[in-house]
């Protein structure tokens, strides 16, 4: 009749690709995380991690760093997105594009630029590792916070704000009780795109002051030591955090296009 072709068969290569290069690596990670160097199964890797003050310190440090970075990003990105979306500035799309354009410039080059400037201002960056980490991460991830918040705010129906005003809300109340709640999906999407990289993107810190203490850097050091079991254990811990985060934030697929830098 029509032959054996069906449109759904088109997806087979991609499905196989995902199974081999996404699912299989995760299974391997789980296997390595629960075995020791001689291949014996057990939870020794995790016991070592959770009883060693150094590694636990790293976990806490990266959570705090990610939290502070996310807050700082939010404090800068929200006003920027809000004022851009709510104002009557002409050529909004051009300004938005300028704000997210850094996404398309290689981040290592941008961090190089930041490092040169900070060095002039501060001298040796290693004297204030935490502050400089926050500055570096914020500089790197800010566009990923601005874009989803802007998109969400510009989608809000302006007449809702006018309705609030008509019903007697002053501008502050209209903002706090109407606009802010309606913009939350954008905030959540932005937070989930900043928090996780801030826990794992150790290269930013490495470049700024040649030394890092976050979860991502543990994977890097296990990798350099050819300790696949330790690296897998850290990866699995990060995966659990990612899963929890995704469940909490709700799985927003817009995130994907935002991270890809699509403003079109």
């Amino acid at each position: 009749m029509k032959g054996t072709f069906q449109r759904k068969y088109l997806g087979i290569p991609y499905a196989l690709y995902l199974l081999v290069f996404v699912i299989l690596p995760l299974i391997v990670i789980v296997y390595y995380a629960f075995t020791d160097a001689s291949g014996r199964p057990g939870i020794g890797n995790f016991i070592n991690f959770f009883t060693d003050p150094n590694t636990m310190g790293t976990l806490v440090y990266s959570l705090v760093l990610a939290f502070v970075t996310t807050c700082v990003c939010l404090l800068i990105a929200y006003p920027a997105a809000y004022f851009l979306a709510a104002s009557r500035i002409r050529s909004k799309s051009a300004i938005l594009m300028l704000m997210v354009m850094p996404m398309w410039i290689n981040f290592t080059l941008r961090i190089t630029a930041l490092k040169e400037i900070l060095t002039v201002v501060e001298g040796n960056l290693a004297f204030h590792p935490f502050v400089n980490s926050v500055i570096g991460m914020t500089y790197d991830f800010l566009p990923f916070m601005i874009l989803p918040i802007y998109n969400q705010i510009s989608r809000i129906d302006k007449s809702l704000i006018e309705a609030a005003a008509d019903l007697g809300a002053d501008p502050r109340q209209a903002f706090l009780r109407v606009l802010l709640p309606l913009s939350m999906p954008g905030v959540i999407s932005g937070v989930s795109m900043v928090f996780l990289p801030a826990m794992t993107n150790y290269v930013v810190l490495d470049m700024l002051y040649n030394s890092t203490y976050i979860m991502g850097s543990l994977i890097g050091s296990y990798f350099s030591a050819y300790d696949w079991h330790g690296g897998s254990m850290i990866s699995l811990i990060l995966l659990v955090i990612i899963c929890l985060f995704t469940l909490l934030a709700g799985n927003d697929e817009n995130e994907g296009t935002a991270r890809g830098g699509s403003v079109l």
């Binding site: 391997v28 990289p197 794992t200 150790y202 994977i219 990798f223 990866s235």
Partner: peptide, 8 residues
């Protein structure tokens, strides 16, 4: 996280 993707 990209580091987990790369490592795995």
């Amino acid at each position: 996280a990209d580091v987990v993707t790369g490592f795995s």
